[in-house]
Amino acid sequence: MLEINNLHASVDGKQILKGIDLKVSSGEVHAIMGPNGSGKSTLSTVIAGHEDFEIDKGEILFEDEDLIDFNTEERAHKGIFLSFQYPVEIPGVTVTNFIKTSINQMRKANGLDEMPANVMLKKIREKSDLLKIDSKFLSRSLNEGFSGGEKKRNEIFQMAMLEPKLAILDETDSGLDIDALKIVANGVNMLRNDDTAVVLITHYQRLLDYIVPDFVHVLSDGKIVKSGNKNLAIELEAKGYDWVK
């Protein structure tokens, strides 16, 4: 599904990704771990198409198409979803209307009619129940005044609504208490099936107790320095990142 070959990316002339190779197939969950500043978040924003980052070398193939030819919204239309580490606050747009706009713009781009209001409402109710989101929360302005945990839960809610093919979750576990972590993990696990893939970007092993990855990669100084199965994460937790450098 996703194939990254020798990806080099920089921002303001500063090289951050220095040759990433990563292959994610449908049905898989990959965890990308690494110390602060190793390029984890850059990797996720580059996949999502942030224009501040320059791709100097290499390619990102999504379902065999090079993503470089597509802008951010087009990548979203293809089924790529990024859960933000720091979701942006947007006063004046409610969660509900935001998700409605998002879904209908996605549908429009894919040649579908708008989702009927009753179907939308049912889906919103179903997904918010799943994530134990209060209906009052849905009529609040997007992320405005949300706690860290609420923001993350809202990201997963959007993911559940949009049902992407590839979900990249950037530090979704940070700022969550253990109960919220379980709810979020449950939401992610519900998305898992043979046609979807998940990339978890995380600093800690904790999340991986609840979303068990098929592969674990360690990113250090812009490169994947080690890959393995879930045991690698446990080993990392015990030995620290210095071990892989």
């Binding site: 999502a48 198409g49 942030h50 224009e51 802008n71 951010t72 919204e73 990548r75 979203a76 239309h77 979803f81 990024l82 933000f84 979701p87 942006v88 947007i90 006063p91 004046g92 747009v93 935001f98 706009t101 998002s102 713009q105 996605m106 781009a109 959007q158 949009l162």
Partner: peptide
């Protein structure tokens, strides 16, 4: 806000609509 625009675009909202939505939200309250 460029970051807000990026956020909206990752949710499939095209840039012009995203600009409109942000401007509108700014005015609307």
């Amino acid at each position: 806000d460029e970051e807000a625009l990026f956020y909206l675009r990752t949710r499939g909202i095209p840039i012009n609509e995203a600009r409109g939505l942000l401007t509108y939200a700014f005015a609307n309250n």
